[in-house]
Design a protein around this nucleic acid. Structure first.
Lengths: 120, 120
DNA sequence: AATAGTATTATTCAACTTGTATAATACAAA
DNA sequence: TTTGTATTATACAAGTTGAATAATACTATT
């Protein structure tokens, strides 16, 4: 009985959970190196082990938001085909922001107290 | 210049980020042991190092949702004063659900690839 | 018996992100 | 000219949380 409900509960929880996570994943992708949208999407899919499959539209929307406030910037480069690609990177402010965010919000899970609880 | 904007960006990002995180924190609190709402709130505030300060109303709302679908249950117990308290705990299904969630969504950050990136 | 404090339930509105759908613009190569 | 790639834009639905407000109910104290 449980076996049929559990996957649905899990995916609906994950759907909610990931809504606030996209920015983090994008910034991690950019910390890894300059990327344009397709590469960011691929990075996230692989590194999240397919937990997060985002739409390109969501990436563009998110990137534009942070571009406007100088957290993210880009450089035009040619691809194999079509028009130039925007290769995004974190600005100095974006780098600082990500660093502080990781320190406050991610490192928590590496603390002994939480880590013990996670593995109990 | 950056120094004035950064704290605002950080807290607005955190506000968004934590919106999908409450369920995880509640479930971790319950995994730690049966608790009623005040204790859950305290657990989250302390263990998140004040990164997450949630409203009791949000806890009630969230708990009720998962209570209805048999992920969370409770036991009435008397407190020092006032009416009985509902001491919540994870059901068998809730425990399984949390375990699977952690495995898929949290353990990622302990992988070498992500961990290296976080500390770069 | 009345009051004050504790615990929970309920409703509503605003703010925010993402999914989804749809459309438009623009460039390059075949 | 057509096809494929890359980006921008708008609008609506769904979901969560913050905040405000109100109501119910039990207990202990005065």
């Amino acid at each position: 009985m449980t076996k049929e409900i559990l996957p649905d509960l899990l995916s609906s929880w994950e759907e909610t959970y990931k809504k606030g996570q996209l920015t983090l994943w994008i910034f991690l992708a950019l910390k890894d190196g300059q990327k344009y949208v397709d590469e960011i999407k691929e990075f996230i899919e692989i590194k999240s082990q397919s937990t997060i499959n985002c739409e390109e539209q969501s990436l563009y929307r998110n990137l534009r938001k942070y571009e406007h406030i100088d957290v993210v910037s880009f450089e035009n480069r040619k691809g194999n085909k079509g028009p130039d690609r925007k290769y995004y990177y974190l600005t100095k402010m974006g780098t600082e922001l990500l660093e502080k965010f990781i320190e406050r919000n991610i490192k928590l899970f590496f603390s002994n107290e939480i880590n013990n609880l996670l593995n109990k």
